[in-house]
Design a protein around this nucleic acid. Sequence first.
DNA 1: GTATAAATAAACAGAA
DNA 2: GTTCTGTTTATTTATA
Length: 673
Amino acid sequence: MMVESASETIRSAPSGQNGVGSLSGQADGGGGGSSGGGAAGPAAGGAGRDSAVGADSNGEMSPAELLHFQQQQALQVARQFLLQQASGLSSPGNNDSKQSASAVQVPVSVAMMSSQMLTPQQMQQILSPPQLQALLQQQQALMIQQLQEYYKKQQEQLHLQLLTQQQAGKQQPKEALGNKQLAFQQQLLQMQQLQQQHLLNLQRQGLVSLQPSQASGPLQTLPQAAVCPTDLPQLWKGEGAPGQPAEDSVKQEGLDLTGTATTATSFAAPPKVSPPLSHHTLPNGQPTVLTPRRDSSSHEETPGSHPLYGHGECKWPGCETLCEDLGQFIKHLNTEHALDDRSTAQCRVQMQVVQQLEIQLAKESERLQAMMTHLHMRPSEPKPFSQPVTVSAADSFPDGLAHPPTSAAAPVTPLRPPGLGSASLHSGGPARRRSNDKFCSPISSELAQNHEFYKNADVRPPFTYASLIRQAILETPDRQLTLNEIYNWFTRMFAYFRRNTATWKNAVRHNLSLHKCFVRVENVKGAVWTVDEREYQKRRPPKMTGSPTLVKNMISGLSYGALNASYQAALAESSFPLLNSPGMLNPGSASSLLPLGHDDAGAPVEPLPSNGSSSPPRLSPPQYSHQVQVKEEPAEAEEDRRPGPPLGPPNPSTTGPPEDRELEEELPGEELS
DNA sequence: GTATAAATAAACAGAA
DNA sequence: GTTCTGTTTATTTATA
């Protein structure tokens, strides 16, 4: 049977899982039927759940509340003003003077008195234009001031946190710190967005006539630096929303990203916003949200196109609903992908995915540059990659907004754990196994780099179970773990595996049994699992990665398409176990072939003995030998592959040499660098 | 369209 | 009897 499959590959997000969540479970599947459970559908499930999210704001009053409060306040003041006007009619002069805002200062008591409800429209009828204008201006000034204060406070808090984190972070790996910083940056972004949002809302309500200058005011108070404009829209959806889940504030009108996006980047632009603000843009009042800047002049999307619509189906992650035409699609978009927790979550996940890719790409690009430099090849340009990336990123993003490749340095910020992470991820589709697998394989380094991320974010790691199990085992000094220890490693290392235990535990057991590379050894303390690297490496799929063509593309630099290929190739290269480490391809090193191969290199968590870093020094792997030995399987036919001696009894020591061979055989294609 | 690999679900058996 | 562990089979999905 398929046993052969080894597992090296990696896949990305699987699908499923989902939500089924069986917390219950510890009991995983096991025996009698208990297991299982949920089949179905995962995806959906997960998403919604945790909405709790964000919130970000620490403060006493949530942005949403503040908004409400401000709106009410505005209304009240308006009422007061009216009362004054009414009562003060007697004094004609008032009208004129009213402009002086004096009116605004109406005592609260008065306000209380005016319990009557007046809608803005009513007020408009009652008040004369100049009066209204004066009132609005006053309100505007007042609110802006409040907003500024509020945000300043928030900002200060964030900065404080940031400082604290930085200090603490000194002891942590830079990456971890990076994550936190990014998190803070995102918070700042959120603040900005909220700020804009508030202003926009006010505008919409006619309470504030926003003018570029004014609008920009508050914004400028925030540090723009870290922000990348393009991120705003995402955050808007992703981060911002959660904070105020069902808050109308967000939904209110089509506040959508669109508006925000544009305003974000260049608030000044009076974008559509200021215009007649007619409200409700879209049906359902749903924000155009997902529809990227559709309204804006930009391109309302030519009648038949929409970033999220293609080939007659909805491109929303995990959706694929068929829509005959754009109209139907729009309808679908507004009903199925409205601004709710689920959409927000999906959006967020997409953001993560994009960010991760960007980060990865940046790293690989850097490596490539170094490689080329080393080989005396002039890099086509420092940016070749980044550019493409941008493109890709943009593509991937629903909005079609360009994503600044920039963030490269910034590791994704872990979202709060529970949640949609997984669900959404797979929504994107289970993962692409094969290709990815390979590419991702450098688990150790990947993990090392994103350790914090996986630990905290409920995102499914882009590795196959087999590769994860292997990693878990190899990370231990004796290179052996009991099933339970493996479970623990999973839960410790990945937030994602803290849920649906029955599902993934079953998968782990299944993988242990299925793959020959995992060998069960009876130990004093029971059975432990070890890895037979040779077996593990065996399965590597032949072609693809290293194809010369890819390399070529890579070098030449390329078009977007090429980029993909090159990127993959690069990744593949890195994935190559043994080679991946810095030194890479050094045949000599290959000899070491130790199990860990590259894994060691990066071994994040626990320094493996050998890890000294990639380098060659991997001495004889101590324990390796043992593990392998036990193989239950007598001689697998595999031997054929490798002549000989090598395996025999899986003996580690012997392994060394043999493996090289293997590598050579197998690798040739792949790596090439 | 087919083959392969991986994920997932589930049945089942043995041991603790 | 329950739970854990381990094996195996079947189905689904994605990718090459």
